[in-house]
Simulated scan of single mutants.
Amino acid sequence: MVELIRKIFDDHDLFPFSLAYKSTKSSQSELPDHFHDWYEIVFVYRGSGTFFVDHTFYDMKQGDLFLIPGNTIHRATPDKETPVTSSAIYFSPAMLQAAQFGDGFSYLQSFEQASALRGYKLATLPHHAQQLAQIFESIQYELLHAIPGYRQAIYLHLLQLLLYVQRDVAATEARTPHVDTLVVPQWMREILLYMDQHYCENISLTTLSKRAAVSPAHFSRAFKQLIGMNFTAYILTKRIIRAKQLLQESDASVQTIAEMCGFESLPHFHAMFKRMLGLTPAAVRKSV
């Protein structure tokens, strides 16, 4: 059973945008490990917790900004005593297919850099945090009042936010590659990196536990506790996400892509792909 969730947003063909404003969540109300096609921006107002993104753990604290590209595994775990209060923006990248003006700028540039550097967290300065909070508040105001033109206003605020993040926040703040303050065993950090580099290969529990120098039972318990899902579901999800990317970006056959992503049979690939994404490989390729 695949434990990871693919979050599906309401079908807003004309306005693919959603905002969760200043919500304080407990561990029980947070989604388990999940991914979605839309891009996500998370801004932390107060509290503390842990954020697992891609294959890295981050701590969460006041002023932190997280940029999560589409189809990236992630999960927030709020602290029990001081849970995180945050706002999250979700949007389809299709919203940003605006005219190019020849200066080489892209509104998704910060997300592209996050993917390339494998660093998804920015720790903001106080004046950056104040400006970001104001933009989120302006978007919430437009959503609540829904005055004619509010969607256009929200769209402009989103562009302002992305422009500000790229030109001001990301330009001055170093991305956080990892967090040593979190109680995560070094062998787990190393094994997650190894899995990230070899998930399309034949990886077994025995192989991983030997590499981590722990027993298979301990490996399974620790992985489930820290990641929130078992290692087979984690690997399967990464394979499906990679297969989807190849279907959209290459002309390779479905059979070839299935083999490249570590699936031993085409029927199994089709079944897992449809089960996880709700679409067939052919349907994903046709949608490009």
Rank of each mutant, 00 (worst) to 15 (best):
L125W: 03
R239I: 05
P78H: 08
K224E: 09
G70P: 09
I257S: 03
P32F: 10
H145S: 12
I257G: 02
I203N: 03
H198L: 00
P126T: 08
T77P: 01
I191D: 02
L205T: 06
C200H: 04
L193Y: 12
Q97W: 07
D11A: 08
A233L: 08
V184F: 02
L125A: 11
T256E: 12
S209V: 05
R6N: 05
P16M: 00
Q197Y: 08
L161M: 13
D33M: 15
V183N: 10
Q152E: 15
P281F: 01
W38H: 11
K80F: 12
D10G: 11
A20R: 10
A258E: 01
S115H: 15
R167A: 06
E40V: 13
R167Q: 08
Q225V: 10
F43Y: 12
R239P: 00
Y199F: 12
K274L: 02
T237A: 15
I5L: 15
N202Q: 13
H34I: 05
A116I: 07
A258C: 06
F51G: 13
L205Y: 07
I203W: 00
R175M: 07
T24G: 09
C200W: 00
L236I: 07
T280K: 10
H12D: 12
V44L: 13
L143G: 02
L108I: 13
L117V: 08
T82Q: 14
D13H: 04
G49Y: 00
Y120R: 13
F105Q: 04
L14F: 09
V169H: 08
A283G: 04
L125E: 15
K210R: 13
T280S: 11
G47A: 10
